[in-house]
Write a protein that binds this DNA or RNA. Structure first.
Lengths: 241, 241
DNA sequence: AGAACGATTGCGGGTTCCCGCATATTGGGT
DNA sequence: ACCCAATATGCGGGAACCCGCAATCGTTCT
């Protein structure tokens, strides 16, 4: 049994290595990658079925890497080990988990015991383990998450990428008006209207731009998510020609 | 001589502690804070003149904390110790350094030796030390930074916050047209026009929103910067009443 | 002083955005 | 089959945005 560790911080990497060896005596080899790109290669070469992965790395973030790793072999087991429980990350992860795959999500702030338990549960028992702080977010997040629909989230990404209503309509196969409807929906859920006290229906804010920052401040969006979305957009643009 | 360490990650914190003790035998006490808020308090209580500070922490980021610490006593010496050399961070730091204060900026990826040297230079010799990777960024960044003016950067923040042209004009004491001029300036420098190949002057992008993401993707903006700018904006809004 | 360059401002108009109102369309539930 | 709620679509208009053109102002250099 081999385990692949993906983590760019050397301190955390050696800590992980230690914890993995302690929790999994049946582990014969620990392979280390320092970014997502290297992870994809090493997973391919060594054909490892067990991966511990950090999110947010320089070259290729954890979600991207996980996506391609799973695309090649959907039965690999991946434990995500991250600093944050931001909605952007959780949504990103749950979007790419293949049907029935075993995976986990534990926070770096968790105690050693929790990490060890998760390692055994996922890699040995083939069970999913998601930290409570994270799972609690699935429904309603800490920052009062006004549960955006998956569809609305999609549109939110699009305006974050700077698309116009028209191109969004085209991309999502909707009418122009529908896009705008969803936008007003989003504006409402994000409280764009009454930022900074009541009586602020004056024109101090550009709704569309404001929605994006609001989303970022509420951690619905982050750098990694934007990066991924941008790549998807580029793909769509070129295939549309 | 006392040293205050501000760092939310326990592994990094203990590493820092170790390095500080090794580099500074004259140091009699090491105090630890786990976020910016606690840092402000402890700096006040212990009246420490020497601080090592991480950027990006949960409760209050390093720049915010440094700002209030320096506001109270501008001759304190702060060494920023960060993962990234993003323009957003560097700009953020250089904006709040009091005139003539000694400070430093070293990356976490730097070797132990570099960290120790920086510690001695700043705390003992009272000299500024800025990592080369970081200083190189001051002029031209890795991602071809088309050097935004300080004024343009300011406007960029404002549209990132979702302000309308009119309110920006009001806030920056400019005419509406000037704001728009600066915007076109920014659009040009950020290459908003020819995203994804040539012949893209069609209306697939909303320039203003696109500029924001482009800035984020290029690391001119990040979460911390937005957070700070948002606070400033709120202050302005309320004082304007 | 005069020339020259840049930044600021005003004007006008073409486009996009935001949304109220009204009309399909869809997908259950009884 | 019927109704109902939610969603999608069309139309129209007021506001905001983007920008070309031209006049003004300020600074610097000769």
């Amino acid at each position: 049994m081999k385990v692949l560790i993906v983590e760019d911080d050397p301190l955390h990497r050696s800590y992980l290595n230690e914890q993995v060896r302690a929790a999994l005596p049946e582990c014969t080899a620990v392979i280390e990658a320092i970014d997502g790109l290297e992870a994809e290669q090493l997973a391919r070469e060594h054909n490892t079925a067990h991966v511990v992965m950090d999110l947010q790395m320089s070259k290729r973030n954890g979600i991207e890497a996980a996506r391609t790793i799973w695309r090649e072999k959907p039965d690999r087991r991946i434990l995500f080990w991250s600093n944050y429980s931001d909605e952007a990350y959780v949504r990103g992860v749950s979007r790419i988990v293949p049907n029935g795959a075993a995976y986990g999500y534990v926070l770096k702030s968790a105690a050693d015991e929790r990490l060890k338990l998760a390692l055994r549960s996922i890699f040995i028992e083939n069970q999913c383990v998601i930290d409570n702080e994270v799972r609690g977010m699935q429904q309603r997040s800490v920052t009062p998450n006004i549960g955006l629909t998956e569809a609305e989230y999609e549109i939110l990404m699009d305006i974050a990428l700077g698309m116009t209503d028209r191109s969004i309509a085209q991309r999502r196969h909707l009418s122009l008006r529908s896009v705008q409807n969803r936008l007003t929906q989003i504006y409402g859920k994000l409280d764009i209207y009454q930022v900074s006290g009541p009586q602020r229906d004056d024109g101090t804010f550009n709704l569309r731009a404001r929605a994006v920052t609001e989303a970022i401040l509420r951690k619905l969006l982050n750098y990694g998510a934007l990066e991924r979305a941008e790549a998807d957009l580029k793909a769509w643009l070129s295939e549309k020609m």
